[in-house]
């Protein structure tokens, strides 16, 4: 690795002021798992890293507010999320998705904020949070703003974050009653590979028809996306095999996968189709078994 200096501010204000610079090689670092990889491969050679480790006590809380919204502190580790009874109570989908996310050592160190700010489309949490209408609260020297996740993730490894801004909260609105869901992860190589496709699907039934469907796809796409066309197609329909089949076709038609060593674009589109259909079936089945995660 190239040399750099590591600054360790004690407060958010101090951290924001250190980041408020024109120097593009000044970067914040939380758990550092992704950044360390980039620095070791010399893809990224910072002069200064601003460690957020000492802000952890104030920015790592996981709690429900009075409205029932879930707040994930950006410096909460992914393992904190995995083991949080608050999260498990809120939705078991997140809890269970965490168990297959990378490995325990990474989850012990990687943070919610870093996970989102990295903008890597292969991460497991963004599609789930996106399907749950999560918002990201951002602070900079200029002030605070709140951005919905689809707007936060702007592309392949890019987000709406300015270099001088930090995520200060991740808010997941209280779930409507009866919303059940799943996260389905498809790996093409070994079982512990990165996902080639991730699908988060949630459904709410009313009177025998789909009252609400939420579907987000990641990994096969350049960034996680909500499939709103699929969602509106399903609304009001009976959850029959044909409907899910058609929804899956719609999903596949709407994504434009990038080819890589894990699969051609055409194959990935086929997989999106299969995964969306299976995720919808599982989301529906999850009504009786309280959510879950499937690993294909």
């Amino acid at each position: 690795m190239n040399p750099f200096q590591l600054l360790q501010p004690e407060t958010l204000e101090e951290a924001l002021s250190l980041l408020n610079t024109d120097d593009p090689s000044v970067r914040p670092v939380a758990g550092g798992t992704a950044l360390m990889l980039m620095m070791k491969s010399k893809v990224f050679t910072p002069h200064t890293l601003v460690s957020l480790q000492r802000l952890k006590p104030s920015l790592s809380g996981i709690r429900l507010d009075d409205a029932g919204d879930l707040h994930l502190g950006p410096l909460a580790s992914l393992r904190d999320v995995e083991r949080s009874p608050v999260v498990a109570e809120f939705t078991p989908v997140i809890t269970q998705a965490m168990q297959t996310l990378s490995n325990v050592r990474v989850r012990n160190v990687a943070t919610v904020g870093g996970h989102l700010a990295h903008g890597d489309p292969h991460m497991d949490l963004p599609p789930i949070l996106m399907a749950l209408d999560a918002r990201v609260r951002i602070s900079g020297q200029a002030g605070e703003r709140e951005v919905a996740l689809p707007e936060f993730l702007t592309g392949y490894y890019t987000t709406v974050l300015n270099p001088s801004e930090l995520i200060t909260d991740v808010v997941v609105p209280a779930l409507p009653n009866g919303l059940s869901g799943t996260y389905l992860k498809y790996t093409a190589l070994s079982a512990d590979d990165w996902p080639m496709c991730g699908v988060a699907a949630f459904v709410r039934m009313q009177g025998g028809v789909v009252a609400e469907a939420r579907v987000a796809v990641s990994a096969a796409t350049e960034r996680p996306v909500r499939l709103t066309g699929v969602e509106s197609f399903l609304r009001g329909r009976r959850p029959a095999a044909e409907a899910f089949e058609e929804a899956a076709e719609l999903a596949a038609a709407g994504v434009h996968p990038l080819a890589d060593i894990r699969g051609s674009s055409g194959y990935k589109r086929e997989i999106v189709k299969v995964c969306v259909r299976r995720a919808l079936e599982q989301a529906l089945a999850a009504r009786t078994r309280n959510g879950g995660v499937a690993h294909e």
Partner: peptide, 9 residues
């Protein structure tokens, strides 16, 4: 990116 068999395999 070059994956080898692990516990789950």
């Amino acid at each position: 990116d070059y994956k080898i068999p692990g516990f789950w395999d």
